[in-house]
Design a protein around this nucleic acid. Structure first.
Length: 598
DNA sequence: GCGATCAGGT
DNA sequence: CACACCTGATCGC
């Protein structure tokens, strides 16, 4: 749970993801994504009143977040105060003190966060330096190097502070199987079940939160069906999602929910109460997306776990793992790291210390101690237990592993050739409301690069452990209930293949100190970039005045040429569609910059 | 009646 | 061992 109080040291006049208490006095608000724990105070009467009397206070977020937010009538009063920004489009924002008229100018850039639809990180550049507020994020190893606006010419921008989603910033959560691996496993399980008969039905037991949509779109594509959900309202401007969901209960894949009686659902009935029209009882399995993690030396990654006669857990994470966070931080090398989550049983000092350890790992050279920060003590490991040999379930229930998948990267998806690549699908946001009849065809996008088109086209995935996964046969009594026998549990033991790749990747990511210059890149087997950052060997860092002018012009949409050394560097004002990310839902329209001043 | 907070649950 | 959410009880206004 985020314990971030809402404000950053450098820019205390803006509030991010918190809207109560001190944040009531902010000059501008920023919402990174539409999850309730980042919206505290957002519908409060005090803020509502403030808006009534203010001409300048705005809420900045992505288009998708705006849409999701306004789909809840409780936030309707924000409508005229929301400024949706494009991803990866530096925007000049002027914070105005309404009492004194004092102004403060910032350049804010939304970067894709990979956490849920519409989720972004905020890159803020201004007089107090460049800071990055990550919100919640899930980025794979190497992703930071693909975000062009974290770079200036050939090098990473000098980042003073990162306000970090530190949910899994703990070595216990060293590894979380990649999105592709998890998706692939779920697809295999669904495939095995729904192919048995039209009466075999899958219930995806998802929580009431945004973030599972890419599961729906992928499964929908794969099985040529729509996923049954409770409501479509929030997706009415998101054709790529809308086309994959339905309120028609006659489908083999459900993600519907019911406020009550969730306990008795598996094997007997669905939350929506759907049953076959001819009275034949449905054969239902439930799949509950859950976070599963593995220690540093763990060679197995069990992606699907059977928890009952007809219930499963499948690995699914909205947040980056420890090694992904470390990769992210070692790439950016911020001077300060402010964790947003203080782990239970930890004090703020502990986390501050972790940060020091992190920075020591990241930068072999001596770092200046940031002013007002306590000095590091010695490194106390967060966890004293044995997480190195974590081959057990992460869950408290006794469970049998159904599948072990350690693909270590390049074998993830049939057509995917590198390990760090998120699922290949695109979502697009539109300003028009689509009707059901308009949504049957997946939208293509002119921005999509040819390689993306290839990847998002129909794929022939490898069947996942198709002869090793054994689902309960219909002849086995589907008595719900716990205490499976060994035989019933059917441990699927694929051979432990922990090929070198996975460990090599992890090890290459951040421990050893020598390779952590900003320019350093993992070897090409680990990371593929969608663009090459040009090398400008003798460039120099522009001063604050240069930057200020540059960003002003960038915000105005100009193409900017700067002389940073012996070469001219052309700074493109808008980079579109270059990232292979799961969640950056881009505006489907020609959109000039929102150059926002007030 | 509403909001904030907490406990307890999934 | 986590997240992100819900419901219900309680308290204060």
């Amino acid at each position: 749970m985020s314990s971030f109080a809402g404000r950053m040291k450098e820019y205390p006049n803006m509030s991010l993801d918190r809207f109560d208490r001190e944040n009531l006095h902010a000059r501008a608000y920023f919402l990174s994504h539409c999850h309730k724990d980042h919206m505290k105070g957002l519908k409060g009467p005090l803020l509502k009143r403030k808006l009534k009397f203010s001409l300048t206070v705005k809420l900045y977020c992505s288009f998708v977040t705006k849409e999701l937010l306004l789909s809840n009538p409780k936030y309707a009063f924000w409508e005229d105060h929301i400024v949706a920004l494009e991803l990866e489009s530096p925007t000049l924002i002027t914070l105005i003190d309404e009492a004194s008229g004092e102004k403060e100018e910032l350049v804010v850039t939304l970067l894709p966060a990979g956490h849920c639809p519409g989720s972004v990180m905020f890159l803020v550049e201004g007089a107090q330096g460049t800071v990055l507020y990550t919100g919640d994020f899930r980025l794979a190893k190497g992703d930071a190097s693909r975000i062009e606006l974290l770079h200036s010419g050939s090098r990473v921008k000098d980042i003073k502070s990162v306000y970090l989603d530190s949910t899994f910033y703990d070595p216990r959560f060293y590894q979380i199987p990649s999105r592709e691996t998890c998706l692939h496993a779920i697809r295999g399980l669904v495939q095995d079940w729904v192919s048995r008969s039209a009466y075999h039905t899958v219930w995806l037991n998802c929580k009431a939160a945004y973030g599972y949509e890419y599961l729906f779109t992928n499964l929908g594509d794969e099985f040529h069906t729509q996923i049954h959900v409770k409501s479509l309202d929030m997706f009415k401007k998101m054709p790529e999602i809308l086309s994959h969901v339905t309120t028609d209960r006659a489908t083999q894949i459900h993600a519907c929910r019911h406020p009550k009686d969730e306990e008795f659902v598996p094997a007997s009935r669905l939350p929506c109460g759907s049953s076959a029209s001819d009275g034949t009882p449905l054969n239902i399995i439930s799949i509950k997306p859950s976070t599963m993690w593995f220690g540093e030396r763990t060679q197995r990654t069990k992606v699907i776990v059977r928890t009952g006669a007809s219930s499963y857990r499948a690995c699914f994470s909205f947040h980056s793992s420890y090694s992904e966070i470390k990769d992210f931080l070692s790439y950016l090398q911020p001077i300060n790291i402010y964790p947003s989550v203080i782990p239970i049983g930890r004090t703020h000092a502990d986390v501050t210390e972790l940060k020091r350890v992190m920075m020591q790992e990241a930068t072999p050279t001596t770092l200046p101690n940031p002013p007002d920060e306590p000095l590091p003590l010695t490194h106390i490991p967060l966890i004293t237990g044995d997480y190195m040999d974590c081959t057990e379930s992460n869950d408290d229930e006794e469970e049998r592993y159904l599948e072990e998948e350690e693909r270590g990267g390049e074998r993830d998806e049939g057509s995917v050739s590198n390990s760090g690549t998120p699922p290949h699908w695109e979502e697009f946001f539109t300003t028009e409301i689509l009707t059901d009849s308009q949504t049957s065809q997946p939208h293509s996008c002119s921005h999509t690069s040819p390689s993306h088109s290839t990847l998002t086209g129909s794929q022939t995935p490898e069947l996942f452990v198709d002869d090793s996964v054994k689902l309960p046969s219909p002849s086995i009594p589907l008595s719900a209930g716990r205490g499976l026998s060994q035989a019933e549990s059917m441990l699927i033991q694929s051979e432990d293949r922990c090929q070198g790749d996975a460990l090599t990747n992890l090890d290459a990511g951040g421990e050893e100190s020598g390779s952590h210059t900003h320019q350093s890149e993992p070897t090409e087997s680990q990371v593929s970039s969608d663009f090459d950052i040009p090398s400008t060997p003798d460039s120099h860092t522009p001063g604050p005045d240069d930057l200020s002018d540059l960003y002003r012009r960038l915000a105005a949409g100009e193409e900017v040429v700067t002389r940073t050394g012996s070469q001219d560097t052309i700074v493109m004002p808008y980079i579109h569609m270059c990232l292979l990310h799961t969640w950056p839902i881009r505006a489907k329209r020609n959109h000039s910059y929102s150059s926002t001043t007030l």
